[in-house]
Write a protein that binds this DNA or RNA. Structure first.
Lengths: 215, 215
DNA sequence: ATGAGTTTTTGTACACGTATAGAAAGTAGC
DNA sequence: GCTACTTTCTATACGTGTACAAAAACTCAT
């Protein structure tokens, strides 16, 4: 053992991450602030920055932790259906945690322990006949779609909670029916139509299109 | 004219918005802060809040302003191709303005003066044989994909600029080749493969899939 | 024991968005 | 001219993430 030098640490990365988990669990996402977290681990805010580069890194660690416990459903054999099932499981798992949205845009791979999902999707795409390059592209396309959908749904939810005037209401009142006949025709129905969950429809369309492209 | 009462305004919404435009133009997105903007229009920060509810509302106004000048390309007749062209134009226009990303998640319609895009996409979808309901769903799916792609690309760009260690590097070093053979096989090539712009490929796949679903 | 070097923690400070309270500057009725 | 009322603007304050500098607590060489 190489006998560490320097001032002995009072807190560790692991302490911070687990305290963050507790905090979120107990008081919700909103109370996860660097200052609050520091109090929780019994240190000053800036001490945290010795163990994590920034708050975003902390969130990524949190996500990674959590991702390890994400469900890995039985996947069907048929490649297209396999892609769909894996992607839906991924989205399902991420949707449960509203705060992940802040961090999703980080990359096309979102957590080390969640690599199972891209692996399954890419593998299924290859089995469906795509080259490895195209399979990677397919995964990323699916990922972009998924991230966009989660983000949008979360934003819509937040809007609703805050009781903010949805943009649409204003839009559809003074609409120029000449220039925008379809939207005018839709009118009030927009709101009703856009609460529906169309993720699966879109995903299936996407997969069908991606696989058809190579045939 | 109804002879306004109360203290006469020193600044207007329009002043604020145009000052914000100037500021962004001159010094970049980063310097658009409420305080800086207030200095620019010659008022205190809180004065702004009498004219805009939020910073987010300000950004939406900005976006709306700009969206009015977004290109409206000639669209081909064939419905699928029409959808693709319109969506690509929309993405192209939004990509030019990195800051829109902060605001994209707002809604599935992002600006009053940009309603032309959904109109064209929905209309083309209907012409392709979809019901109006399905056409709306198709638009929203395309929107989610587009928003996700723009977001991710912007995040990747920012990472690169900040010289942050891309997550992928770490990921692909200690990879378990047993559990994740495809990713292991890809290895270093991931970085190379993921700089490619696959938006159009994905979009075409999506449109093909969406239109095939109704046949 | 002393001093140098290393690592971790603290203290102070800044700019951010914005809530809240109250002052300022007008018009309308008397 | 005075008072009410209304609108707009200012002052102050809070909590946020985090940069920077200094202090603290340890090991090791002398």
């Amino acid at each position: 053992m190489p006998a560490r030098t320097g001032r002995p640490p009072k807190i560790s990365r692991a302490d911070i991450v687990s305290a963050a988990h507790r905090l979120i669990e107990a008081e919700g996402t909103g109370s996860l602030t660097m200052r609050r977290l520091a109090r929780e681990v019994g240190a000053t805010p800036m001490a945290l920055y010795h163990h994590v580069h920034d708050k975003e890194e902390l969130l990524l660690l949190l996500l990674d932790d959590y991702a390890a416990a994400m469900p890995r459903p039985q996947l069907p054999d048929e490649p297209g259906e396999r892609m769909v099932t894996a992607a839906m499981a991924m989205r399902e798992a991420l949707s449960g945690w509203p705060w992940v949205v802040e961090v999703l845009r980080a990359d096309d791979l979102f957590a080390e322990s969640a690599l199972w999902y891209p692996e399954m999707i890419i593998d299924a795409a290859v089995r469906a006949g795509l080259t490895l390059e195209r399979a990677v592209a397919a995964y990323r396309i699916i990922w972009h779609y998924t991230a966009g959908e989660i983000s949008a749904r979360d934003a819509a939810r937040r809007r609703r909670e805050e009781g903010r005037p949805t943009f649409r209401e204003r839009v559809f009142t003074g609409l120029d029916a000449q220039a925008l006949p379809r939207l005018a025709e839709l009118g009030e129905r927009w709101a009703e139509l856009t609460v529906r969950d169309t993720y699966e429809d879109g995903l299936r369309a996407l997969v069908r299109g991606l696989l058809a492209a190579s045939a």
